[in-house]
Write a protein that binds this DNA or RNA. Structure first.
Length: 570
RNA sequence: UGCCCCUUAGCUCAACUGGCAGAGCGUCUGACUCUGGAUCAGAAGGUUCCAGGUUCGAAACCUGGAGGGGCAACCA
C-alpha cells in the first residue's frame, strides 16, 4: 500500500465548527466549569445503534478529543422492562467499530442509591412529595397545554409522612403504581414538564443488572441530569425534543447542590431520506420480518451498515458533512452515498465481475489457449499500485446490458458490427448474434484484433466503449446481493392516514443475482477485501453467508450511473 | 388557543458576530480518459419566510405576522 493518499481524504483532520463547539471553546477560554470539557454518550440499552446515534457519538467523542476533555459511555438503564445486556454489548462493539473509545463506562442503574438520597433530601426540604393518586388522576391533574393543572390532594402531606412513605416505597412495601414521588414545583407552570414532574415510580421487575434488588426506578428527567452531574459532565448534549426538560434538569442539579453543574445543549436529530431512524420503527421492521435482523444490510444501524460493507470512516465523514445545528435536519440519502463512495474510491482494488452474463465466442481466437493479461488494480488517478493477471480465452462473458441488437443513440457499448474494448484486453467486433428458438439472444460471435493486446490500437483508432468481462472457463460463479434503499419514497411516513410506513417499503431493496461471474483472482484475497466491480459499484463478501466455495457479495453502494439516468429520463 | 425551538440555493451547512450572501452534495454543459466511474473546467440555481422599524449600511438587531416542529408516558 502506498502512503500517498491525499491528506484531505481524511476529513477528520479539520472538523467543522458548529454552535456547540463554539460554546465549548468559550467554556475553555473563560474557565467556566473549572474543569476540562466532559461529555457523555448516554444510550438506553434497548436497541441497536443507528445513524442518528452515530451523529451523537461523533459529536460527543469528537468534542472530547478536540478539546482535550473526556467522554463517558453511560447506559441510561432506568427502565427494567425494555433493557438487556445483549444491547449493552452491541452498543459497546458499535462505538468501538466507529473508532471511539470512552474514558469511563457507567450505568445509571449504579446511581439508584445516590438518586434515592437526593430524593430524600428533596422531601426533607419539602421540595418533593409522595403522590398516591392513580395514573389517570395524575394525568388529569396535570391540566393541558392551555389550561393549568390542579394540585393533588396528597400534595399537602407532611415532610414526615412523605419520608415515611418514601422509605417504605424503597423497602418494597407497596405494589406497582400505588405511589410515586413527585417534585413540588408548580401545577400551573407554562412548561408542562414542570407541573410537579414524577421522579420515582414503583416497579417490581427484573432489571438486567440489578436483578430484583431495587423497586423504585427513577424517570428520565430525574436520572439524567443528576447522572451527568455525578460524573462531572460539563455539557450535556441531547436532541431537540428534550429542550423542555432543560428546566427540570437545571432545577434538580441546583436543588441537589452541585457546584458548577453541567448544562444541557440541544441539537437537531438526524433524519435521512428513504429510511427510518427511530428505534421503534426499526424494531417493527425486524419483528415483522421485513428485514433479516438488526444487522440486515439495508438497515441504517451500525450493525447493518457494517455487514453491508460501509466503513466507519465513511460514517464519520458523513456526520462531519451534515454538521450540527438546531434546524430540522432531513438529509438526502445521496449525501450519505457520496460519503461512502468517497471513502472507498481512493483505496479499494478494481476487479471484473459480470452480473448478468451472456456468452461471447471469439471465432478467431485459438481454442484452448489462455492469454494471461496484466490488469492494474487501480485506475490512473488512484495513487496506489498493484496488479494481477487475468486469463483471456476464446469464450468469455460480458454483461447482457452491454449489448444491444438495435442500439439507440449514445449507446456506446457492443452492437452488431461495432468494435469495443474489453478492459485490459483487446478490441473486439461483434460479427453475429445467435438466438434460440424463442428468439432470445444466447451468444455473440465476435472477432478480436490481436494487435490491440493490452487495450491500445497501434494504428491509433478509437473505440467508444470499454466493457468488463471474464473468461468463461476461469470465472467463478457467485451470488451478488444488490441492496438498495429500504423505502421507495423519501419520507416513509408520508402515507395516507389509514396506512403506516411499512407500506412504503421498496420491494426492490434486495435483488439477489445468483449467477454472476467473477474473475478468479478474488479467491486469493482476504475475506474482508472491499472491491470496486468495474462499471458496477462497490462490493465485499457478506461476512456471514459467503463461503470459500460459494461466494456471496454484498453491494455496498452503486457507482453514479449517468447512462441509467439517461434511460430513466425517457 | 399556553410555553419553547426553528426558517439563508433542490438538500446539508457557512457568512470573522452590523460591512460585496459562499461551500459541499445534487443538477446541467463541456473536456479528458482503457470504468458512461473517477478527475478537470464551466454553468444554472437567492425577494436570506413575510411586513414594518433602527442604521450610512441588516441574513444578522427590534416589533408584528406566517409556516414548520417539540411539550399534556408511572418511556428515553
Amino acid at each position: 500500500m502506498s502512503d500517498t493518499i491525499p491528506a484531505d481524504h481524511n476529513s477528520a483532520l479539520a472538523p467543522r465548527r458548529d454552535f456547540i463547539r463554539e460554546m465549548v471553546a468559550d467554556d475553555v477560554a473563560n474557565g467556566h466549569f473549572g474543569r476540562a470539557p466532559a461529555t457523555r454518550f448516554p444510550p438506553e440499552p434497548n436497541g441497536f445503534l443507528h445513524m442518528g446515534h452515530a451523529k451523537s457519538i461523533c459529536l460527543n467523542f469528537g468534542i472530547a478529543k478536540e478539546f482535550g476533555g473526556t467522554c463517558n459511555l453511560r447506559f441510561d438503564d432506568t427502565n427494567p422492562a425494555t433493557e438487556d445486556v445483549k444491547y449493552v454489548e452491541a452498543i459497546k462493539r458499535d462505538i468501538e467499530w466507529l473508532g471511539f473509545q470512552w474514558d469511563a463506562e457507567y450505568y445509571a442503574s449504579d446511581y439508584f442509591e445516590k438518586l434515592y438520597d437526593i430524593a430524600e433530601g428533596l422531601v426533607r426540604r419539602d421540595k418533593a412529595y409522595v403522590d398516591s393518586q392513580t395514573e389517570q388522576q395524575i394525568r388529569e391533574g396535570r391540566g393541558t397545554v392551555t389550561t393549568p393543572g390542579t394540585p393533588s390532594v396528597y400534595r399537602a402531606r407532611s415532610v414526615e409522612e412523605n419520608l415515611e412513605l418514601l422509605r417504605r416505597m424503597r423497602a418494597g412495601e407497596f405494589p406497582d403504581g400505588a405511589h410515586v414521588l413527585r417534585a413540588k414545583i408548580d401545577l400551573a407552570h407554562p412548561n408542562m414538564i414542570m407541573r410537579d414532574p414524577l421522579l420515582l415510580r414503583i416497579r417490581h421487575a427484573h432489571h438486567y443488572r440489578r436483578g430484583n434488588d431495587w423497586c423504585i426506578y427513577p424517570l428520565y428527567d430525574f436520572a439524567h441530569g443528576l447522572s451527568d452531574a455525578i460524573e462531572g459532565i460539563t455539557r450535556s448534549l441531547c436532541t431537540l425534543e428534550f429542550k423542555d426538560s432543560r428546566d427540570i434538569y437545571d432545577w434538580l442539579v441546583e436543588e441537589a447542590g452541585f457546584v458548577k453543574p453541567p448544562t444541557q445543549i440541544e441539537f437537531a436529530r438526524l433524519e435521512l431520506d428513504y429510511t427510518v431512524l427511530s428505534k421503534r420503527k426499526l424494531l417493527r421492521l425486524v419483528n415483522d420480518g421485513h428485514v433479516s435482523g438488526w444487522d440486515d444490510p439495508r438497515m441504517p444501524t451500525m450493525a447493518g451498515l457494517r455487514r453491508r460493507g460501509v466503513r466507519p470512516d465513511a460514517i464519520r465523514a458523513f456526520a462531519d458533512a451534515v454538521g450540527v445545528t438546531r434546524n430540522k435536519q432531513r438529509v438526502e440519502i445521496g449525501m450519505f452515498e457520496h460519503s461512502i463512495r468517497d471513502d472507498l474510491n481512493m483505496i479499494v482494488p478494481r476487479v471484473l465481475c459480470v452480473m448478468n452474463p451472456i456468452k461471447v465466442v471469439l471465432t478467431n481466437f485459438p481454442e484452448g489457449e489462455v492469454d494471461e493479461l496484466d490488469a492494474s488494480y487501480y485506475p490512473h488517478d488512484v495513487p496506489l499500485t498493484g496488479s494481477r493477471k487475468v486469463p483471456f480465452t476464446r469464450e468469455l462473458y460480458i454483461d447482457r446490458d452491454d449489448f444491444m441488437e438495435d442500439p439507440p443513440k449514445k449507446f456506446f457499448r457492443l452492437a452488431p458490427g461495432r468494435e469495443v474494448r474489453l478492459r485490459y484486453a483487446y478490441f473486439i467486433t461483434c460479427q453475429d448474434v445467435i438466438k434460440n428458438d424463442a428468439g432470445e439472444i444466447v451468444e455473440l460471435r465476435c472477432t478480436y484484433d490481436p494487435a490491440t493486446r493490452g487495450g491500445d490500437s497501434p494504428d491509433g483508432r478509437k473505440v467508444q466503449g470499454t466493457l468488463h468481462w471474464v473468461s468463461a472457463s476461469h470465472a467463478v460463479e457467485c451470488e451478488v446481493r444488490v441492496y438498495d434503499r429500504l423505502f421507495a419514497q423519501p419520507d416513509p411516513d408520508d402515507v395516507p392516514d389509514d396506512q403506516d410506513f411499512l407500506t412504503a417499503i421498496n420491494p426492490q431493496s434486495l435483488v439477489r443475482v445468483t449467477e454472476a461471474k467473477i474473475e478468479p483472482s478474488v479467491l486469493r484475497d482476504a475475506a474482508d477485501t472491499r472491491y470496486q466491480f468495474e462499471r458496477v459499484g462497490y462490493f465485499w463478501r457478506d461476512p456471514d453467508d459467503s463461503r470459500e466455495d460459494a461466494l456471496v457479495f454484498n453491494r455496498i453502494v452503486g457507482l453514479r450511473d449517468s447512462w441509467a439516468k439517461q434511460v430513466t429520463k425517457k
